[in-house]
Amino acid sequence: MSEAIKTFFSPSVLGPEIFYGSSVALFLIGLYMVLVKKNLVKIAIGLTFIESGVNLFLISIGYVWGKTAPILNKTLMMGTPSKEVVDPVPQALVLTAIVIGVAVTAMALSIVIVIHDKYGTLNISKIKELKW
């Protein structure tokens, strides 16, 4: 059984496309939540889904199948590090993007708290102005 799973996830069968596919899926799920859901908290969660989708996409762009993390250690120093690690730049970008995403989510939720205090509901169709 585990052999079958291993073959299924080996580069020859799926390849890195699985990452691209799932990042697109995450993005679309998030977009659906933002556009369709009526609950403000669910919309905020949808935003984090979209961000995760883009972050996964960035990471998979820099990922090289079968290579290791870009952390310099003794084993890496023996060979040629540049040929054995994945691209470190997207990982640095994603770290920044995750922090920014957390800030946006925190901001969104704190606004949602104020809205709930003032209107007593989280349903956007019951709040008078929040339509476009």
Partner: peptide, 13 residues
């Protein structure tokens, strides 16, 4: 206020 929170959420989204 309720109004500014709504406007802020719209902008944020």
């Amino acid at each position: 206020t309720g109004h500014s929170a709504e406007a802020g959420f719209k902008y944020l989204l």
